[in-house]
Amino acid sequence: MLKKRIIPSLLLKDNRMVKSVRFGGFRDTGHPLTAARIYDAQRVDELLVLDIFASRERRGMRSEIVAQISEECFMPLCVGGGIRSIEDMRILLSKGADKVLINTGAVECERLIGEAARAFGSSTVVVSVDVRRRPASGLKSGMEGEYEVFVRGGAEATGLDPVLWSRTAQELGAGEIFLTSIDRDGTMSGLDIALIRSIVDSVSIPVIASGGVGTLDDFRIGMEEGGASAVSAASIFHFTDQSPIKARKYLVDRGVNVRS
């Protein structure tokens, strides 16, 4: 049976690793390569590496770190940040990425999803969806739902509904959805289960849920109640004494279908 995945994420700012709260207030959390080595030694299911400033600074992802991590680690590596073209993806894949994550690039040019799926296979293409809960006063007429997709590191509203956008991404060829609640990011206050459920129930591709994991039970809730195929987290591993090993053990003990 297919296992649910625990996916630590590494956020890059310049050549350091950082962690945000609601996509801002960055704290330095060390060197990404050191962290990747530790996660590799802990046999994590997969690692996500995100150059979170690439889109904001309108540049491509710095690929050297991907090469460095891939040089030493034998775990699946998903990378993203500032990807705009098939060529960007080709470079990252040649440096050792297994999957590429596109966000702003996909919203601004939907065609990119299909082109990427044809070039590299759907299963290589992860569409990242950053979602913020819209304040009541911000509701535009004719728009339904209370959530909205944001791009450029959460800085730019798109007017897109997360459910409809996720479905579109799937139809265009996305192999997975990486779903982040901006409101919960770094708060460690729990995943937004209603948001996760709404996407999981609307697409047939795997959904990786992120934003808000603060306890080991949040992984279980995301997987069992949210129905996510994977839960991604960072703060809990950086700022508490929890580790992917402890998370795995916690979940196995509770009968959640993860690797033991």
Binding site: K3, E46, P76, G175, E176, I205, P206, S229
Partner: peptide, 30 residues
């Protein structure tokens, strides 16, 4: 879900020099 992404268990029903002593284990699929 399709794609089938992640770790799934493989049961080896036959001996083979490449699988060696591995009889059942989790492997990464995508």
């Amino acid at each position: 879900n399709v794609p089938h992404v992640g770790w799934n268990s493989v049961r080896f029903s036959k001996n083979h020099p490449v699988t060696g002593s591995v009889k059942q284990a989790d492997f990464y699929f995508v």
